[in-house]
Design a protein around this nucleic acid. Structure first.
Lengths: 218, 218
DNA sequence: AAAATAATTTAGTCTTGCCTAAATTATTAT
DNA sequence: ATAATAATTTAGGCAAGACTAAATTATTTT
């Protein structure tokens, strides 16, 4: 049985290792968990003791197969609970993260699997992220971006890749807000910029922007 | 924000104070929480600091109004989650306690109230215990006993008051098991013993036994 | 390649919540 | 009413998980 802190470190390492194939640095974990590097170092030693990570001093951590499965089981719970909160309890999909952060630590495989069934075995959470199976297996597919849609298709805007304030202001000015539906109307040939339809307005955005917007197909 | 341990101590004091109108003893709490008296003493000081209990050295603890409300909010969550587990996830009502012990500590009033609504504002949990309202108000009614039923009425057996092994053996021998439906068929005049109908058999039990069986009406 | 800078680890401390053993206070029995 | 027993508290310790400051190792710059 892992402690809450151990679980959070594993999860953090999992998420951070998606954007880098070498070891995950102590600092990035500390930053991710709002804690200090020295605290992370201690935890890395502990997780290493438990064969959940490979930890080489000064060179960060990598999940072992066991660690990866363990992380994915927690992530499975997180995402299932998010689906529950949105689909059954009518939460907005941007309100559920904090609550799911708590629920993901509830220990009961039976509960998780019954919840899965109750939700009719969903494959993705409300942010479009895939839900691992009971054994902690997941097919990692790159998240769908607006630029991946074809002409005529519609997606719901569920997240941003680069969340720099410049980009967020850009979205704000254009009234592109989380949760809104975006239809791809047309693509310019010369610069691949997209003409898109929002609720009632149409506008044009660059490929660069479009590939910064995560969406789920509708 | 209370720690998990603080919440558990409050809950324990609440439950123990139902069976005694003076202060709840240190030892009974320690016993209830599978911990040691000395640990409880420390926690009582802390809860007292926070105005959740009135604690007089060597004379146990009593909940303040604030402490009582706080305990009842936790109990509300516990019982709502139990209803969820049984009604929505198809758990057996005797499997849910341990899981609800974890879920009751999830912090989000919004979640609790949305869950309440989703469950259609249940008034009792699967064991027949009443569910406090959002403000932590509860109408304490003595739990329904088999001896409270009238002739012709049926109840589902949901718990025992005195759980001495003698009594449990008595039940076992008579094949009276948790969850079974019991119909009151007739009452003897001279000793008030009850003729009851189980699934397919009939038998007679004393008033004493009948008032040891908690039930919910059907 | 050495110096400067950044990242990481180590050492030492703190808090929470638990423990055991000893001391103190309440209760019960004679 | 006092002695014996039981309950409770105090004192002192321990492990987990966090922190700061100092020491060490990596990386970057010149």
């Amino acid at each position: 049985m892992l402690s809450l802190s151990e679980e959070n470190h594993l999860k953090s390492i999992f998420h951070l290792s998606l954007n880098s194939d070498s070891g995950v640095s102590t600092n990035s974990i500390a930053n991710n968990l709002n804690t200090k590097a020295s605290s992370v170092t201690e935890m890395l030693k502990k997780l290493s003791e438990k064969s959940l990570i490979v930890y080489i001093k000064y060179h960060g951590a990598q999940l072992t197969e066991l660690g990866r499965k363990t992380a994915l089981k927690i992530i499975r719970k997180h995402r299932l609970w998010e689906v529950f909160l949105v689909e059954k309890l009518d939460f907005k999909w941007d309100e559920v993260h904090e609550i799911a952060e708590q629920l993901e630590h509830i220990q009961s495989e039976k509960l998780t699997n019954k919840l899965d069934k109750f939700l009719n075995f969903p494959t993705h959470d409300p942010h479009g992220d895939p839900i691992p199976n009971p054994a902690g297996f997941i097919k990692i597919t790159p998240k769908l971006k607006l630029s991946d849609l074809g002409i005529g298709e519609t997606g719901k805007f569920v997240g941003v890749k680069d969340s720099s304030s410049a980009f967020l202001k850009y979205l704000d000015k254009r009234k592109i807000s989380l949760g809104c539906n975006i239809k791809v109307l047309h693509q310019e040939e010369f610069d691949q910029s997209l003409h898109i339809g929002l609720d009632d307005t149409n506008l044009t955005i660059s490929v660069k922007s479009a590939s910064n917007l995560y969406i789920t197909k509708i």
